[in-house]
Design a protein around this nucleic acid. Structure first.
Length: 360
RNA sequence: UGGGGUGUCGCCAAGCGGUAAGGCACGGGACUUUGACUCCCGCAUUCGUAGGUUCGAAUCCUGCCACCCCAG
C-alpha cells in the first residue's frame, strides 16, 4: 500500500496502469499533464478530449484525478532545444528529452510534493532492482517496447517509477481495459511529438523557423537538381517532399546530407545509394542508466544498438573516448542522422545511449 | 527559307487501327509516443490542334501550331 501518482495521457496504456495499481491495493491518483499551450489551429480539441478521457477513466476506476501544467518547463527545457537543433541542421528527438526533463523530473517532483512514494506511467518498459542499482529493461511486447525513448532516465527516476504494463502485450492491455469497462479500451494509439501531437511537420517548423531557400545538388556530380525551402525542413534519408521526381534516371531521390555553410541540400538517387549507408558513427552526451559507463575508457563494448525507434537490434562495437562514444556497426546503417539518439542494449537491458553527432 | 525529326498525366515513358502500361513526383491511408523509412490505395473518357478515312484511331491521311536538328 503506497501512494502512487500515475501520469495519465488519456490513452489505454496509462489507463490500465492506473487500474492495475488500484487493483493491487495502492492509493492511486491520476494526473493529466498539459504541457503544450496551443497557439491556435485544431490540436486543442485532442488535448481536451484526452483530459475528458482521463476523468472518465478515473471515475470508472474510482480514483481521484488532477491536471497539471508544465508548459513553461516544456518550452524551456525541451522545445527550446528542439528548435535550436533544427536551426543547427540536426534532427532532434524531443521525446527522449521530454521524458528526462518533464515526465521523470518535473512530474516526479510534483508527485513527491503530493507525498507519493512512486510515480507510474503506461510505458512499455520494465525496471528491476539489482545489486548495482536499478535497471531498465525492454517491454515484453517486442512491437511496443519503448525503452528507446527512456534511455536518458537515471537512477533517481527508475527508483521512483513503476511501469505496470511493461510486462504485458498491447493486446493484453486492451483486453484488460475492455474487461474493466474503461472507455479508452479501443482508443487509437497516439503518435507525433509528445504533448504536441500529429501534425504537418514542415508547416509546424515553418511557423518557428524562417525559410532559407537554396540549392539541391547531386552528391556525386555536384549538379544542381532542384531547390529546397530551407535545410532545417529536411532530414537524412528523407524521400518525400523533395519534388524533383522524374529527373535523372527516374528513381527516387533521397536526402544525403546538408551543408549549412553553403545552404546546400545534398541528394542522391536510388534507395541503395552508398552515400545513404555508413558503419561508423560518433555519439555525444552519452548517458547511462546505471549512472556510469559499462566499460572503462578506451575499452570496447560489444552490444546491440538502435539508431532509431523500432529498428531491429544492430550488432555494434562501442568505444568510450573523451567526450563521446565511437560506434562501429557490423552491418551498414541507413541514414544515421545527427541529432537523433542511438540507444544501446545488452540483451534485454537498456544500457543508455547518446546523441548522434556524425556518421561516416 | 528549304530538308528532316518530335509532339501521350508536373517529369520520364510504353503504345504501331480495337477502345491510354510503368517509373518518378504528388494526394490519401496504414504503420509509428521524435524526425524519417516502409507498405497500401488513388492519380490522363484522353493522347499539340483542326478536319478526314474507318464499325472503331493516340495509332492511317491532310492543314495548322510548337519545339529540336541539318542546311543556308
Amino acid at each position: 500500500m503506497a501512494r502512487i501518482v500515475v501520469g495519465m495521457s488519456g490513452g489505454v496504456d496509462s489507463s490500465v496502469a492506473a487500474l492495475l495499481l488500484h487493483r493491487a491495493g495502492h492509493e492511486v491518483i491520476g494526473v493529466f499533464m498539459n504541457n503544450w499551450e496551443e497557439t491556435g489551429e485544431d490540436g486543442v480539441c485532442t488535448a481536451e478530449r484526452d483530459w475528458a478521457d482521463v476523468r472518465s477513466v478515473c471515475d470508472t476506476i474510482g480514483i481521484p484525478y488532477y491536471a497539471v501544467n508544465f508548459a513553461e518547463e516544456y518550452k524551456e527545457r525541451v522545445f527550446a532545444y528542439f528548435l535550436a537543433e533544427y536551426q543547427a541542421g540536426r534532427t532532434p528527438n524531443p521525446d527522449v528529452l521530454c521524458n528526462r526533463e518533464i515526465k521523470f523530473k518535473s512530474f516526479l517532483d510534483f508527485a513527491q510534493q503530493l507525498g507519493a512514494q512512486h510515480i507510474a506511467t503506461g510505458h512499455f518498459v520494465r525496471s528491476r532492482a539489482c545489486q548495482g542499482g536499478w535497471r531498465l529493461l525492454r517491454g515484453v511486447d517486442p512491437g511496443k517496447d519503448q525503452s528507446y525513448f527512456l534511455y536518458m532516465l537515471g537512477q533517481r527516476a527508475l527508483a521512483s517509477a513503476m511501469f505496470p504494463v511493461g510486462g504485458m502485450t498491447k493486446q493484453q492491455v486492451r483486453a484488460v481495459a475492455q474487461d474493466a469497462g474503461l472507455p479508452t479500451f479501443a482508443k487509437k494509439d497516439s503518435t507525433g511529438i509528445c504533448f504536441i501531437g500529429e501534425r504537418d511537420f514542415k508547416a509546424f517548423l515553418q511557423t518557428y523557423l524562417p525559410a532559407q531557400p537554396g540549392e539541391m545538388r547531386q552528391i556525386d556530380t555536384d549538379a544542381v537538381v532542384g531547390r529546397h525551402d530551407g535545410l532545417m525542413y529536411y532530414t537524412l534519408g528523407q524521400r518525400r517532399g523533395l519534388g524533383i521526381g522524374g529527373s535523372g534516371d527516374g528513381r527516387s531521390w533521397f536526402v544525403i546530407g546538408k551543408d549549412m555553410a553553403c545552404n546546400v541540400l545534398w541528394v542522391a538517387q536510388g534507395e541503395d545509394h552508398p552515400a545513404l549507408y555508413t558503419r561508423e558513427a560518433e555519439a555525444i552526451q552519452p548517458t547511462w542508466i546505471a549512472g556510469h559507463p559499462p566499460m572503462a575508457e578506451g575499452e570496447s563494448l560489444h552490444c546491440t544498438a538502435k539508431y532509431r525507434y523500432r529498428q531491429t537490434d544492430q550488432a555494434v562495437t562501442v568505444i568510450w573516448q573523451g567526450e563521446g562514444l565511437r560506434l562501429t556497426a557490423q552491418e551498414p546503417q541507413r541514414a544515421v542522422t545527427p541529432g537523433q539518439s542511438v540507444v544501446l542494449y545488452d540483451g534485454e537491458v537498456c544500457l543508455g545511449g547518446g546523441v548522434i553527432a556524425k556518421a561516416w
